[in-house]
Write a protein that binds this DNA or RNA. Structure first.
Lengths: 207, 207
DNA sequence: TCGTAAATTGACTAGTCAGTCAATTGTTGC
DNA sequence: GCAACAATTGACTGACTAGTCAATTTACGA
């Protein structure tokens, strides 16, 4: 049984991630993946029946990793508001730390004719977010917008913020941008309360 | 001289747009494009030296069209705020009406190894937006965020809103979602003023 | 130490695709 | 009605690629 084990399988997945981000799915021949991973062509097809299965596997594990990262420390938060803010914070952190994986997911999400099954399964990992958004609406913490719209703008703002952060070198400016991104979405979705609310809460956050 | 003229050239571009959105750049062979467009293989390469040149051309003209649509009626708006709101409104309208072109641009933007030149030239069409954002910040109408961040979240929110609108059939709900999208970004970027500001202004808009 | 099965190899195949080019047709000015 | 050039055709090629498979190596339990 060598599903999770095997150095070679791991090497193939990691190499594939790098190459896909650099050159795209179609610009990356399986021969190149195996070569760079230091294995023979046949080995790749021993672990993954097709190239598509390799891509899907990579997508699913990456999404799962991202979802797990977003939930970090969630139990400790008491309020819905606190949880939403923590999720956002975790997401930005993860995205900044895993730029490649982020790019890969984006590329995948915007490619037509890439396994709808994998797409759906990947999305399902984020259903917990859906719950919190509904809860937030129910509690009157965030505006009563169409929930899929809310989830969509949150996700797209996230990747936008991460992309901008990646362009910036100065670490101080990076932090500023992360703050501004949080501000933007929070002001965009929160129902009311005085405008300073954001700033006060933020400075109380640990880390 | 057949640069803008020629039915065949036009047919190739239109067919290519459809096929690219349906099947992706690499999933669409030039042979299929010419076949569907009702021309011979050679004709495609008579008008476009390479497949990449075809893609770039399509991208540039699509971006140009989008930019033009966003500027519609801009001269008539007096205030920066009014202009920003009109641009957003135009953008949503165009995106909803041109879902395919929207998808195409998105696909293009997220593909690696697609001509950086075209990408940059496409972006330059939207420099006017940059101006208005700077002006808005200068006038204290919108928050003093990092301008590239602002442009990024605006663009990504836009495509998010349009994607969601496209999923919805009920025209009433569509309008609601468009309103909510506008609300979201406006609350996200506007500096202050009472929260009702948005609603009041919106109902005064014509159309 | 041996036998069996899993893991690994890489030369090979069958198919695909971007781009070519010599030949044909259409167009325009004279 | 013809010369010159532009537009159009489609069979063809050279390069490349996903996936195969028979042969070889490795791992390991008895």
């Amino acid at each position: 049984m060598a599903d999770p084990g095997s150095d070679k399988r791991e090497a193939i997945l990691n190499t594939a991630l790098n190459l896909f981000v650099e050159r795209g799915f179609y610009g990356t021949p399986t021969s190149l993946i195996s070569k760079e991973a230091g294995v023979a062509t046949g080995t790749l097809f021993f672990y993954f029946r097709t190239k598509e299965e390799l891509i899907d596997t990579l997508y699913l594990r990456t999404k799962a990793g991202a979802a797990a990262a977003m939930r970090r420390g969630l139990e400790e938060e008491e309020t819905t508001q606190g949880r939403l803010r923590l999720i956002w914070h975790n997401a930005v952190e993860w995205g900044v730390q895993n730029r490649e994986k982020m790019q890969f997911m984006e590329q995948f999400a915007h490619s037509p004719f890439i396994s709808k099954t994998a797409r759906d399964e990947g999305l399902s990992r984020f259903s917990f977010l859906h719950e919190y958004v509904l809860q937030g609406i129910g509690e009157g913490v965030i505006r009563d917008y169409d929930p899929p719209l809310l989830l969509g703008v949150l996700a797209s703002s996230l990747s936008s913020v991460i992309a901008r952060v990646a362009e910036v070198n100065d670490p101080g400016l990076r932090d500023v941008i992360i703050e501004q991104g949080m501000d933007f979405v929070w002001n965009g979705i929160r129902l009311e309360g005085d405008p300073k609310d954001t700033k006060i809460r933020r400075s109380k956050e640990k880390r």
